[in-house]
């Protein structure tokens, strides 16, 4: 199997999907199932975050086991600002992104000096540090998390308490984010990043500032996860240490691997598949984790490159993007 550097975003796939997502709330509200608007927002948020992790793992070859740190940092920034009376999304969300980006810059600068399995472990170590920092901040809820008084305010008098309005905000961010991600991986930056994934030494020899490219990707992914955190905390109206825990990092990594590492749609498909599977199985049995475990195991053993490859194999063109 050759390495594929082109990851075109086909309008014929993306636009109908976007259209379907735009009409989605009308459909479920028409059949009086408002819960699915909430579920869809959740899936979109995780699709965005998982895609950002896919940029690291799949396109940069950096297996981060600490991505939850940035997700949680974004969530806590919004919640803490809210506690101090700053409810405006225009201030809180950029702040969340900025803090997550700064955290990623600092953590990435240290972690990227290591490789392979050591990189997995050092990102885990830093994420755990962030976790325990927030657990110790009793003023901001400690073990217990910090509840939001309400969702962020986008304009005087307009907050996001309507689930449908919030869904569209999430959809706007997730689709824009995904579009930019698709542009990025096909840009020069994306090519260089994939080159580094394939052979770091050779790229170094060719004169690329490898460390800077990797750090750039790390910060970008961290900032995107921070945005995801800002959205997630609005969805849950709660910032909790659980968002920062290593199991959350593991869940994000599971989404990426399940969806397809290094495939454009990998993060999106993984997030959707995992969360829908959870919902579907949970409706029938309280032991849904058993089913989830069996499905994940089957994916590893029989679809080694994730779900995105299954969809791809269904097309007669095979591996063409």
């Amino acid at each position: 199997m050759g390495v594929q550097l082109d990851h075109p975003l086909h309008a014929a796939v993306a636009l109908p999907l976007l259209a379907a997502l735009i009409v989605f709330p009308f459909v479920v509200l028409a059949i009086d199932e408002p819960f699915y608007v909430v579920l869809a927002s959740r899936i979109l948020i995780f699709a965005l975050v998982a895609t950002s992790l896919n940029l690291l793992v799949g396109f940069g070859g950096m297996v981060s086991f600490g991505h939850a740190a940035f997700l949680g940092a974004g969530a806590y920034v919004v919640a803490i600002l809210m506690q101090h009376g700053v409810a405006s999304a225009w201030i809180a969300w950029p702040a969340a992104v900025a803090v997550a980006a700064l955290a990623a810059l600092a953590i990435g600068a240290v972690c990227l000096r290591t490789r392979g399995v050591y990189f997995i472990m050092i990102t885990l170590a830093f994420a755990q540090m962030v976790y325990f920092v927030f657990v110790s901040l009793k003023a901001y809820g400690g073990d217990d998390g910090l509840s939001l008084a309400s969702r962020s305010v986008v304009a005087p008098g307009i907050d996001l308490n309507s689930d449908t309005l919030f869904y569209y905000v999430v959809l706007a961010f997730a689709s824009t984010g995904f579009f930019l991600f698709a542009r990025l991986v096909n840009s020069r930056f994306g090519r260089v990043l994939q080159g580094i994934r394939e052979n770091e030494t050779r790229m170094e020899a060719l004169g690329y500032a490898v460390h800077r490219y990797k750090l750039g990707a790390f910060v970008l992914a961290g900032a995107t996860a921070g945005l995801g955190g800002a959205l997630l905390v609005n969805q849950n109206e709660l910032a909790s240490p659980g968002t920062l825990s290593w199991t959350q990092s593991g869940m994000l990594l599971t989404m990426v691997i399940l969806g397809g590492v290094g495939y454009l749609w990998g993060g999106v498909m993984g997030a959707a598949a995992l969360l829908l599977m959870e919902e579907l199985l949970a409706a029938y049995t309280i032991h849904w984790q058993l089913g989830l475990g069996l499905v994940l195991l089957a994916v590893v053993l029989f679809a080694p490159n994730g779900l995105a490859t299954l969809a791809r194999a269904a097309g007669p063109g095979g591996r063409d993007g």
Binding site: V13, A311, A314, P316, D320
Partner: peptide
């Protein structure tokens, strides 16, 4: 043709799941 198949896949996947979820 290829795109049509892929399109059908991308669309039916979430819709089928939504229906499966909503039916009970």
């Amino acid at each position: 043709h290829r795109h049509m198949i892929r399109l059908a896949l991308t669309l039916t996947f979430p819709l089928a799941l939504t229906l499966a979820l909503a039916l009970p």
